[in-house]
Amino acid sequence: MEQLFEGLLNDHLGFVVWAAVAFLILLFLLAKFAWNPIMSAITERERSIEDALLKAEAAKEEMARLTNENEQLLKDARAERDLILREARHLKDQIVNEAKSVANVEGARMIENARLEINSLKAVAMADVKNQVATLSVEIAEKILRKQFADQHAQDELVADLLKEVKIK
């Protein structure tokens, strides 16, 4: 046993110390100038990539949402347009119908008025015509009578005829 470990420290302590020093210096320098910058760069890049992916996903969702919204809007607008059109048509029909009925009533009223007017005017005119005919008849009769009674003989004859007629009856 003693033989086995003879000179162990004398021969090998040096290498152990050199190796430890070399490794620790290597660890320190690499950690400071290589591992930390490299790891932080990798982490940073990973984070930025992840961020970019998340953002792209969000943008896609936003796009889909916007498209949906647009479609909804379009649909709503179309429905509203249809509604407005339907209402307008309905209103038009209503107005036309109303106008028609009003016109009918008015027309009937006017016709009635006109008829009444015509009737009254006709009555007046008839009365007038009757008067004139009567006057004319009287005048004609006067003229005839005057002519007939200008001659005495004719008057006598007429009276005789009248008398005859009266006698026969």
Partner: peptide, 12 residues
Amino acid sequence: YDFSITKNVVAL
């Protein structure tokens, strides 16, 4: 105590 720069130290 042997603290020589041996082959292994140089290789290191």
